[in-house]
């Protein structure tokens, strides 16, 4: 349980950093930087998470780089979902209306000021729903780290099954995953309400307490991976 949470949060932190770096990098003018970011994004989106995880765990030791399983897990999850989230970051920044950019030119704001103070805060509100989906995917994705010897929730479920019975063990396990996912969703919805409130778009808090259906725009952003 604790391992599962560690992986989710560690992976999420790494993913958001990677997402912002790659997402911003994928829209700069410099074609080398942009091409590099795009390649990294497509690479990690295109090769399955399991493959990446096994690469870190089985292949790297061949070159003498033996990472602890936990590090492999966080690295794998962070890189994979970071690449997906980078597309969200890029898409959200592009979705900020052109008039906002023009206003920053009219006020002579610098590029950094424009991004940090004007564009990103607005894009942030747009990206939260998609990021929530990926956070849940990441939580679900942690279930595969038992493949690389980590004793996560799924691993313990299997032990519990041997001691008790299938229905009980997996029933409990699924409920725990669901509850954690539900709590994470609520937290993210809270963030979204706050972000929207900052934009002066008040939303009743009641809405924050309902689990939102996965945003179909995620599919539009190029699919997901569970």
């Amino acid at each position: 349980m604790w391992i599962t949470l560690q992986l989710t949060l560690g992976g999420a932190l790494l993913a958001i950093v990677i997402a912002v770096v790659l997402g911003l990098g994928a829209r700069v003018h410099n074609i080398v930087v942009r091409g590099l970011c795009r390649t990294v994004i497509e690479f990690f989106r295109g090769t399955s998470l399991v493959v990446q995880l096994f690469f870190l765990f089985f292949v790297l030791p061949q070159f003498g780089l033996e990472l602890p399983a936990m590090v492999c897990g966080i690295l794998g999850l962070g890189l994979n979902y970071g690449a997906y989230a980078a597309e969200v970051v890029r898409g959200s920044i592009n979705a900020v209306p052109a008039g906002q950019w023009e206003a920053t030119t009219a006020l002579s704001l610098s590029k950094t000021q424009t991004m940090r103070r004007i564009i990103f805060p607005q894009a942030w509100a747009l990206m939260i729903p998609s990021l929530t989906n990926y956070l849940i995917h990441m939580l679900k994705g942690t279930a595969i780290v038992s493949f690389i010897t980590l004793s996560d929730l799924t691993f313990h479920t299997e032990q519990l099954r041997v001691q008790t019975d299938t229905f009980f063990a997996y029933g409990v396990s699924l409920v725990i995953y669901f509850v954690v996912a539900y709590i994470l969703t609520l937290l993210m919805n809270g963030l979204e309400v706050r972000a929207k409130h900052r934009l002066g778009r008040g939303e009743p808090l009641r809405e924050a307490l309902s689990v939102k259906a996965p945003n179909t725009t995620v599919a539009a952003e190029g699919g997901r991976s569970a």
Partner: peptide, 20 residues
């Protein structure tokens, strides 16, 4: 208009005088 929705009215007005 193109006001910045992530800032209050006052913040919109002082943004550039302060930072530029």
């Amino acid at each position: 208009f193109n006001l910045f929705p992530n800032m209050t009215v006052l913040e919109n007005i002082i943004e550039a005088p302060v930072h530029v």
